[in-house]
């Protein structure tokens, strides 16, 4: 019955453009230790309806054009499900724009 409390870790999220507007600035999120990039993105998307819309398609898939960075390195969309984060990591999210 006694389950060990899953420890939490803190990940800093730097959001840009519309996503920043949606989540109201930079964030520090608490996610379970060993959480993946996907888990973090779900948490960011859960902060508000606009944040969810900025990150995810209607079918729940991550929007393919959003640029994901982990500690200053680009992360491919396909890696998001397996890349595990560590306490104190920084994730940057940038939805590029297309107008001219």
């Amino acid at each position: 019955m006694l389950e060990e409390m899953k420890r939490e870790m803190q990940v800093r999220v730097r959001a840009f453009a519309r996503l920043r507007e949606a989540i109201g600035g930079d964030l520090t999120l608490e996610v379970p230790e060993g959480a993946t990039m996907s888990r973090l993105l779900a948490a960011v998307g859960g902060t508000s309806e606009q944040a969810g819309e900025a990150l995810f398609e209607e079918n729940g898939e991550l929007r393919g054009y959003v640029i994901l960075m982990h500690n200053g390195r680009r992360v491919r969309r396909a890696e998001a499900g397996t890349l595990t984060l560590a306490d104190g990591d920084e994730v940057a999210l940038f939805p590029p724009v297309a107008g001219g």
Partner: peptide
């Protein structure tokens, strides 16, 4: 270069040496 709203982005691509537009987007 590209823009929308209050947001924009820019980068310089030197073929053969740097990330190209499709590497980035």
């Amino acid at each position: 270069g590209a823009v929308r709203g209050f947001y924009g982005q820019a980068t310089t691509i030197v073929p053969g040496l740097t990330a190209c537009l499709e590497c980035i987007f």
